[in-house]
Nucleic acid binder design. Structure first.
Lengths: 250, 250
DNA sequence: CGCCATCTTGAGGTCTATCAATTTCAGTGG
DNA sequence: CCACTGAAATTGATAGACCTCAAGATGGCG
């Protein structure tokens, strides 16, 4: 998507800038040693097609990933065929940390769009903890940030009607992409959005239509424009505080 | 509740055994230095009444807690008066880790029963990371375990009808207390259970009545017996894999 | 014994799911 | 450039789950 970021000029010839370093630079400033340590543990960039599974549920979670480009999600399939999207990952985020503590992964990591990602062996985390207390704290904070998103999703699904759920979801996606732009990428079909919000695809369509009729949003195929952000914020009582450092800073 | 655990005999005269040490001993075996480091950072035991707030939303989360006895929960109040319980904490668990990464806490930590808890300053985490890579990894795993519970709750609320939600909730509580006993403590009124599962108190009453009529559970005031555990498991397709090390081992 | 919180039960209404038919749209090949 | 195609989105009708309001029963506790 974006041209190679110029964060770590010439750290290694192999990779065009380590994406996990980018991610962590948003949380705090890293010194050279820390950048090098992270970059060394990072595997090669792998490419995935839409719907391709990066890591399947049911096995031990042997890796976690840093997402270089594209969107991905953690998703859980229920025996009756229903699905629930647990979390959505945008470029420059770390995925799969939450499964490391369990003997077997509970959810699938699936590419939504075409994806480029770097795999880290589970042991890399241990290695980092041993070599850099600071980085281990940043991993901790990254996980805590993901957890805040999950908590907010619980509130959304548990206590808000469909229109508020959608408004909240769209606002979160805007904040996590670029708070200053009203048009956002949204490479998810309505079925997947429904699986993220605990709604049926049909009801997502109806509710988006309602927001569109009120003139608050405009929908394109893989893109969406928030025409009246204030109205959406008031509708669902949106408070971006939970996003912490997960959004691109304001 | 339980008599003083005899895990670390005579580590300190002051406290009758550090509860955070107990918690971590379940994840891994700690050596003397690690026990001492943890115990040193632990504050004095504080007592709280039911409904008392240990840490309020809106301020910076300056502390996290280890729960020595009693039940507590993380809860979020919505402007329209609705509530959502995000997580429930049982004795020997760590609470509030998830708020440490955010500038302001998003949820209240509230005592459900009478509670004894030890506070840790936020800096204690940093201190631990610096002094013991092993402990910092255990903190990480503790947070990951909490996150797995949250993920399962999202599935529960997002994709399961009320009877399955309740069955799943009761089975989780049983596993987290003592998988070998069919009678469990449940010091929550139906209103609070509803707030944890995204249901109204009235509907909780009806659905519990339904499970009772089928002969699958028996309800007392602050206690509940799972008469037909297999039926409940089949009803909600319960898989305890997500609990990891959070339950008292089988 | 009486009080208050909690639980139960009934009736009616709202929200959301499901099923099914139709339309839109991007992509493909003629 | 246009017809074809399959996925996605829209729309209507119906059914079911759950909520709300409200009244009554239960039960612990002073």
């Amino acid at each position: 998507m974006s041209p190679p970021a110029e964060t770590s000029p010439g750290v290694e010839g192999a990779s065009p800038g380590s994406c996990i370093v980018d991610q962590f630079q948003r949380l705090a400033t890293l010194d050279e040693d820390e950048c090098a340590l992270l970059a060394a543990l990072e595997g090669e960039i792998q490419a995935f097609e839409p719907d391709q599974v990066l890591q399947a549920a049911g096995h031990e979670a042997s890796h976690f990933f840093s997402l270089q480009s594209g969107w991905a999600c953690a998703i859980r399939l229920l025996p009756d065929g229903q699905r629930q999207v647990l979390d959505i990952f945008l470029p420059n985020q770390i995925m799969g940390l939450h499964e490391l503590g369990l003997p077997t992964a509970q959810s699938d990591l699936v590419a939504i769009t075409e994806v480029q990602a770097c795999a880290f062996a589970r042991d890399a985390l241990e290695e980092v903890c041993r070599r850099s207390p600071r980085l281990s704290e940043l991993f901790f904070l990254s996980l805590a940030g993901e957890q805040a998103t999950l908590s907010e999703r619980i509130i959304n699904i548990g206590r808000r009607p469909a229109s508020q759920r959608l408004a909240h979801f769209l606002l979160e996606m805007q904040m996590r992409q670029d708070p200053s732009r009203s048009t956002i990428d949204l490479p998810m079909n309505q079925s997947l959005i429904g699986d993220a919000l605990g709604l049926s695809a049909v009801h997502v369509s109806r509710t988006l239509g309602e927001l569109r009729d009120r003139g608050w949003i405009e929908t394109n195929s893989k893109r969406m424009t928030l025409l009246d952000r204030d109205a959406l914020i008031e509708l669902c009582d949106f408070d971006p505080g939970y996003l912490g450092t997960r959004n691109r800073q304001a």
